[in-house]
């Protein structure tokens, strides 16, 4: 994951596939380094954005990535993990292991009880599941109780319910790359929200996962990685 972030951060140019999408990570890193002395309180989020973009640009270029839980959603877990490592005082090797173990536990719940395939349930199963995994991993690494961790995972998926998979030109670029950056920020918000609570909450993770599965079953095929609906239809190729 680390190597993929690093490669993504130093590579610029145009992504393959004909959409002429420019890679942004390298330029963003340059800007963030230049702004370091004048950075405001939310500058950390810009770095999270950078790391997520870097991974998904590598992925779009056919580079080596780690599924988390899929390729199209591969930027969220590494970006949030790097947020933990870089910005949390007292971050440790043990914390990284905790993060990944807990994220995997949550991922296995999605895999077993719903789906992590955009062709099956839309993007909620990819970016939604990844956001939930990252939120849970971060909450656990920050010392959350099992109840708080479950709450973080639930918040992470709940607000992605219904999300479609409508890749422009059938490429894993628009909206996928940016969506990973946005979802990484949501995962951090979800973890922090859960850690400020007691772990007791209204919607359980199991209910949210079942809702995702049911919503995916109701979703028309044109929103399931077929590039026949949504942005894929309205964004005209130039």
């Amino acid at each position: 994951m680390e190597a993929c972030i690093a490669k993504g951060c130093r590579t610029s140019g145009i992504l393959p596939g004909g959409l002429r999408v420019a890679r942004r990570a390298a330029e963003l890193q340059r800007q963030l380094e230049a702004e370091a002395s004048t950075a405001d309180g939310l500058a950390q989020m810009d770095w999270v954005t950078l790391w997520a973009l870097a991974v998904n640009e590598e992925n779009a270029a056919g580079g080596r990535v780690v599924t988390a839980p899929t390729n199209g959603a591969a930027g969220i877990v590494p970006a949030v993990l790097k947020y933990y490592v870089t910005f949390i005082d007292g971050a440790s090797e043990e914390g990284i292991i905790t993060f990944l173990l807990v994220a995997a536990a949550v991922g296995s719940l999605f895999k077993q009880n719903a789906s992590i395939s955009g062709a099956d349930v839309g993007c909620q199963g990819e970016v939604g599941a990844a956001c939930s995994m990252a939120a849970a991993g971060l909450a656990a690494a920050l010392g959350g109780s099992p109840g708080q961790v479950e709450n973080a995972a639930e918040i992470g998926i709940e607000h992605h319910l219904g999300l479609t998979c409508d890749p422009v030109n059938g490429l894993v670029q628009i909206p996928c790359i940016e969506r990973n950056a946005v979802a990484a920020a949501q995962a951090i918000t979800a973890a922090r929200m859960a850690l400020h609570g007691t772990g007791t909450h209204r919607v359980s993770l199991d209910q949210a996962i079942k809702t995702m599965k049911d919503t995916g079953a109701d979703m028309q095929d044109k929103y399931k990685e077929t590039a026949l609906g949504g942005l894929a239809l309205n964004v005209v190729e130039c």
Partner: peptide
């Protein structure tokens, strides 16, 4: 869940 592979898609 965390498998090394190549882009751009795990399922495709």
């Amino acid at each position: 869940l965390f498998k090394v592979g190549i882009g751009p898609s795990s399922s495709h």
